[in-house]
Design a protein around this nucleic acid. Structure first.
Length: 397
DNA sequence: CATCCGTGGGG
DNA sequence: TCCCCAAGGAT
């Protein structure tokens, strides 16, 4: 038996065997139970850099709460973010709603299928555009993600760095040739299914692979060295002092939270007030941790400059959290809300003219600050790290 | 082209 | 424990 065929034969074989395999073993996933392009779109956004098992419960909750493009477009942003809480990459949720409004206003509420129209949607890049068009509309468009690049780099023994844009474009050209007539939806999904279930990053299950006999990567013993991918930079270390500001008077028993800006890290999410432990021009690498008492004092002083009048309390806990590119080393302290404390030094006032409205004792807090109880947490979207801290705090009260 | 943007599971 | 990394996109 000849193992290495000419390129065209190798492609035909691959496509046919993959399709036959996929239609038999494909997983029963929630978004595969409908042909609703809106559902396909939601699932593809959620699946960006996120595992299927993680997405499933979020997807089910999301389409129940926002069953149509219009429902999503009309919803308050905070409700969309709350539905995304814990899923990460929160700009996806904000872009998703922005795109729902694009569809409502520009396409009459109907998901478009044209290349330019789909690609114009916020949060939809080359992969997702191809995924929506091929899966929802069966258009022969490539949908090249990490799975697809791994599978193709092994099967065709492609040693280009998959982190490079040019490599993805190369793969897109290849996929376009591989898609069998009229089978774009199943073929693209099959490609990703193979990468997810068989052609896995580590220890690929070659013996169960439907295309193993002509896989050049396996034949040449390269399956464990492919795909070629540059190593990611380690996350930078950041040191944060975090405040659990305990209310007094009518706010007794409550904790002060604040809403993050609408851009950047954790955009639009709620959090506990926190400051950097390292001075703006400090050398983080040589940073020496302050003792707890000094740290709490520094925290209270910095919050005062943010016009939050507090006095330092006690150390509560330490917490760590790793984002894609940042590692937070956090120390958490209670602070007592005390309006009698000068909220800021006079000379600092000018720097905070643009700061959000400030909560005052007995008055309603500004929209970017809220006093909450444990029960109020369900009304605000928190990143995981603050969920952990708040839950630990309220559990011990 | 490089950096920013979360989280949880598996080896 | 640590490191990798998963159906990527925006800037």
């Amino acid at each position: 038996m000849k193992q290495v065929m000419d390129p065209l034969q190798q492609q035909r074989y691959f496509s046919q065997e993959l399709l036959d395999w996929y239609v038999v073993i494909k997983r029963d996933l929630p978004w595969r139970r409908h042909s609703n392009p809106y559902f396909i779109w939601i699932s593809e956004i959620m699946l960006q850099q996120t595992r299927v098992d993680t997405v499933i419960p979020y997807f089910n909750r999301f389409i129940e709460k926002f069953p149509t493009v219009e429902a999503l477009a009309d919803a308050p942003e905070d409700e969309v973010l709350k539905c995304w809480e814990g899923l990460g990459y929160y700009s996806r949720a904000r872009n998703l709603q922005y795109a729902a409004r694009q569809i409502r206003d520009q396409y009459g509420g109907i998901m478009p299928s044209g290349k330019e129209e789909v690609a114009s949607l916020k949060g939809v890049g080359p992969y997702t555009a191809g995924a929506i068009r091929s899966i929802a509309f069966n258009v022969p468009a490539p949908a090249v993600d990490g799975n697809v690049m791994r599978v193709l780099s092994r099967y065709f023994l492609i040693e280009e760095d998959i982190m490079k844009t040019g490599t993805r474009k190369l793969m897109e050209e290849l996929v376009l040739q591989l898609i069998p007539e009229g089978r774009a939806s199943d073929f693209n999904q099959g490609l990703m299914e193979l990468g997810a279930l068989v052609c896995t990053p580590k220890s690929p299950k070659c013996l169960t692979c439907p295309v193993m006999v002509h896989c050049r990567g396996r034949i040449e013993g390269m399956e464990d060295k492919l795909p070629v991918k540059a190593k990611a930079k380690p996350p930078r270390q950041e040191y944060r002092l975090t405040a659990i500001i305990e209310g007094s008077g009518v706010e007794s028993g409550k904790v002060l939270i604040r809403k993050r800006p609408s851009t950047g890290l954790l955009a639009g999410m709620w959090e506990l007030p926190h400051i950097s432990e390292v001075p703006p021009d400090g050398d983080a690498a040589r940073h020496v941790m302050l003792p707890d008492a000094a740290a709490a004092k520094k925290l209270a002083e910095e919050l005062g400059r943010e016009r939050l009048p507090v006095v330092p309390g006690e150390h509560v806990m330490a917490a760590e959290h790793t984002f894609s590119h940042i590692h937070w080393n956090m120390r958490v302290y209670t602070c007592s809300w005390s309006p009698a404390v000068p909220a800021m030094a006079a000379e600092s006032a000018a720097a905070y003219d643009a700061s959000p409205s400030i909560p005052e004792a007995g008055s309603s807090p500004g929209p970017l600050y809220q006093w909450i109880t444990a029960d109020d947490m369900e009304r605000y979207a928190f990143p995981n790290v603050f969920l952990r801290i708040l839950n630990a705090y309220f559990a011990n009260i």
